[in-house]
């Protein structure tokens, strides 16, 4: 059962999560505990890494235009910073008394805090990346909405020129996202929807071209051709809306998994 919803987050947090879990178990089993070694150097290494994260995090916040990231990321950074302070306190207490029970508790609390804060930060960043992909999806949806007012070949050529790069970017981004997800069910939906979008795109252009040709020649079947174009456009819209929905899913759904 995957705990982290992307392989990127899993790769960063899973090893440290296992280590912290092991420490908690050892702490519980050893009760009074052995004398703790001097942890000043490894705690200093964590503090330096946290200081760097705070710096990088603040730069990310300042350069981002994502209002939700600007609101959520400082909270996560604060959590990591507080946890780091707990580790420094624990290290200092253990130096004075290597058997100190409260120091051990503080050490575990600090390590857990680092894990939770880093997890919150990665989630916040990940959600922001997902919102970027969704913006690309919405761009395509906006172009699809224009399909119904295209009535000349010149406009159709321009429509294809505008739509193509957006579709390419959507396809590349969703494909990369799908590969990073740990939820097999969500991955399968994204693959299916993306394939549909890729298949339907040339069919849509073809249906638009046919309609324009009928309109120019004032031939029969204009209503049917328009209905066909609208049908293909609606199907593409539905597939992209489904992609948007699945991109936003992060929680593990046991029923779906089963």
């Amino acid at each position: 059962m995957p705990v982290f919803h992307t392989k990127t987050i899993e790769g960063i947090l899973e090893p440290v999560a296992q280590q912290v879990e092991r420490l908690v178990i050892l702490h519980e089993e050893a009760e009074d505990g052995n004398a703790m070694p001097d942890l000043e150097r490894p705690v200093q290494a964590v503090s330096s890494a946290v200081t760097n994260l705070i710096k990088v995090g603040k730069e990310t916040i300042n350069s981002s235009e994502d209002a939700i990231l600007k609101q959520d990321m400082p909270v996560a950074l604060h959590r990591v910073e507080n946890a780091s302070k707990l580790l420094v306190e624990a290290s200092s207490m253990l130096k004075a008394d290597p058997y100190s029970g409260p120091a051990r508790k503080k050490l575990i609390e600090g390590a857990r805090g680092i894990l939770q804060g880093t997890s919150a930060l990665l989630l916040c960043f990940d959600e922001s990346e997902v919102r970027k992909i969704i913006r690309e999806c919405r761009k395509v949806l906006d172009y699809l909405a224009v399909a119904e007012v295209i009535e000349t070949m010149e406009d159709l050529v321009q429509f294809v020129k505008d739509l193509s790069p957006c579709l390419t970017k959507l396809s590349r981004d969703v494909d990369a996202r799908e590969k990073d997800l740990t939820h097999q069910f969500h991955r399968e939906i994204l693959v299916r929807c993306l394939e549909q979008v890729k298949t339907l795109a040339p069919i849509l252009i073809c249906s638009m071209k046919m309609l324009i040709q009928i309109m120019v020649k004032r031939g029969k079947g204009e209503a049917e051709a328009a209905a066909n174009r609208n049908y293909v456009e609606q199907r593409m819209t539905d597939e992209i809306n489904e992609i948007i929905r699945v991109l936003q899913l992060t929680t593990y759904d046991e029923d779906e998994w089963d």
Binding site: S48, V56, T60, A111
Partner: peptide, 29 residues
Amino acid sequence: EMILEACKSIAAATSALVKAASAAQRELV
């Protein structure tokens, strides 16, 4: 992304710290 790299560094440093802390406890269990 720099954020991911910074988080990787924290995870590695925290892992090393927790390993060092666990080593002493493990002797007792």
